[in-house]
Design a protein around this nucleic acid. Structure first.
Lengths: 229, 229
DNA sequence: AATCTTAATTTTGAATTCAAAATTATGTCA
DNA sequence: TGACATAATTTTGAATTCAAAATTAAGATT
């Protein structure tokens, strides 16, 4: 294990800051899925005592990012095929709703912003820059979510998205799937511009289902015997 | 060598037990919405120290049942019109999904169980027993949710339902709305029996929207000036 | 008496402490 | 050596402690 230099943090509440930081560590893969959460190391790393760290772990556990084993500590949960098959349909339903609501409330400026993000994403696609494509992709979905003007929806979606992002290879795609995703995004932009909620919802739902299939395929080729976490 | 079978019943950790207990206190109204959470009293009541109690409060805050104010403690959140307008559409989308999935997986036995619950609920309706009607209503929705075979969906739905249940008057209905709800439930049972996912989804969505309108109406007559929590 | 200061008390946030459980290390014996 | 038992160490869960912030009480001034 590595001894990183202590980087003290200061914000409204220690535990909330820790929740955010640990989420980042998990989705960045600094905390490996399936591995034990090194409570002591993390306390040293952030220069906090165990109390706020353990409070944060309880919250992360209720979000499904870690699993608490009584008297044995916390473990980073792994992304399983079963979980992907569960989460993406829910995410699909929620994103479909976000599309429908967004079409009712989105401003022209916001549509322009999405279009700009979309065009940047297309450049990333042309240059096959997967990282920036993935980031812009997330920004687009988030912009639509925000346009839906429903914080509850936003929170729910983001919690589920986070769980999926533990799989670093989530963004990996075949060339064919990538081309298909790009086409879906063309449709998304079109329907959003037209404020065609019904079709936007349908497209977002299909988009999620295709992504689910893609991720499941990836997981199954990576790990032929997926089991429960 | 064979290890002993995993013991299904394991003593819950203190904080998890407290999360469950506090949830009950909140939805039962023992902890009044808008009031300060009496941390010291609760610790005394459950004979635990502040550490697990505060861990539980952090989790409840992330679920939106309490609000933490830095250096000022925890407050039970109130159900506002704004929140109802946000949560019910999300709940509607999720219940619609549960209906669609349930139609694919539900067994004949499970349908029979739902039918039995439905008939009991009808008796409660005839006798105008609101409490038992409400309980059976919840059991029916839960049975459909379980038949969808998607734990993520179940967890998400239940978290949002909990937030709405803080309003004890949630179950209150006009005679007209009650009759309408009963009719909707007749349809729900019919479509579920027919395994007609599309129509079940549509009915559940409408059911939720009608419930949202009913609850909003109730809140607005109760409190003519609803404000943010 | 009403308002403003300031001191006492309570409450909160977080570190520390401590017992119990789990893990690792050590020693024994076939 | 290898399986088992037992002792030492570490880790965990939760109570306690302590400083800082907030709240309440008391006193001073007008």
């Amino acid at each position: 294990m590595h001894t990183a230099p202590p980087q003290p943090i200061r914000r409204m509440s220690l535990h909330q800051e820790l929740v955010d930081r640990l989420q980042l560590l998990i989705i960045n893969g600094d905390l490996t899925p399936g591995a034990k959460v090194p409570e002591k190391d993390l306390c040293a790393r952030f220069d906090v005592s165990r109390t706020p760290m353990r409070e944060a772990l309880k919250v992360l556990a209720s979000d499904g990012l870690v699993r608490l084993e009584p008297n044995r500590g916390a473990w980073v949960t792994t992304v399983t095929v079963g979980e992907v098959d569960e989460v993406f349909p829910v995410l699909g339903a929620l994103e479909a709703l976000s599309g429908e609501l967004a079409c009712k409330s989105i401003t022209a400026d916001e549509i322009a912003t999405v279009r700009h993000l979309h065009e940047q994403m297309m450049v990333s696609y042309e240059t096959r820059n997967l990282d920036s494509y993935f980031t812009l992709n997330q920004q687009i979905h988030r912009a639509i979510l925000l346009a839906a003007r429903n914080d509850t929806l936003t929170t729910s979606c983001q919690a589920l998205s986070l769980r999926m992002q533990r799989a670093r290879y989530l963004a990996n795609m075949t060339e064919g799937r990538w081309a298909q995703a790009v086409q879906e995004h063309e449709d998304i932009l079109k329907y959003l511009s037209d404020r065609d909620g019904k079709n936007l919802a349908k497209t977002l739902l299909g988009h999620m289902e295709a992504k689910r299939a893609s991720v499941v395929h990836w997981l199954e080729t990576q790990n032929p015997l997926p089991d429960a976490s």
